[in-house]
Amino acid sequence: MREFLKIALNLFLISLASAAILGLVFMQTEKARKRNERTRMEQAMLTYVTPTPGAPAPAGVAFRSIHRYLVEGADGPVRSAIGYVLPAQTGPVVLLLTPEGALEKVAPITGDHDLEDEAERDRAVAQALGGKVRLTYTDSYAVAVKDGQRLASFIRGRTQGFKTWVHMLVALSPDNTVRGLDILEQEEDPGLGGDIGYEYFRNQFMGRTLEALEKLKVVKLPLPRDYRMCLERSRWPKLDVGADEIERMCQTHRDDDIYAITGATISSTRVTAGVKKLVHAFVTRMRAIDAVAAREGIALTF
């Protein structure tokens, strides 16, 4: 029996020590992790703040986030509504809209909350809306502003790829032309569908206007050599071709459809469909938010 107690105590002490070490490390690293994650996201977004991707961003750009929630009655939805967490000049608010875009409620978020933290934001929104509702976080948008001017907007969303979800970041100019597409996370087959993350595929979306995007198709044709040169922007400095020559190549293919990745037509089609869907939804929603804000006199900070 004493032997047994000794063993148990021994094991218990080891577990306790390790849990303590882990707790300490967790407290030390958690903040840094969140901060780095955000900086990384902002770095990615800064690339697309100016009309020419990659050009140095002007100083003093701020990013404002919009988070979207699906709000349903507690006992299943009869008519669901959409809640937007928006930064207003008076502090963050939750704007509750009907699916048709009519205003249902404006609820200010009171208290000091870190709205970029998912768990904390969930609590803040539930508190602001009050009553018995079921909240489902759906997606987030971001708008880059400087001196009250919108410089660019960003959609973070996901779409079904060939194997699993493809998470992406779509950057739009203020007139809703695509500035760029970044693939954030994907698990497609490396070398096949995995190429959606490569410049020669994702940069094909650059410069598509809203109208062009709606008509965009995916074609199973080999990617022309000169178009490839134009798309692989990171290799431009290595090319012995002049800037105006590259500009000319890009112009020739500006209105081409999306060239599918060889051996990964489904990945290409799904990503294209995903971009279309995300942009369409974003534009519709921003119009609804802007219309309601103007009508109700809510001063937003973007």
Binding site: E100, T284, A288
Partner: peptide, 9 residues
């Protein structure tokens, strides 16, 4: 027809 999470689209 709409996605459950996007009744506005």
């Amino acid at each position: 027809v709409f996605e459950r999470t996007s009744p506005d689209i």
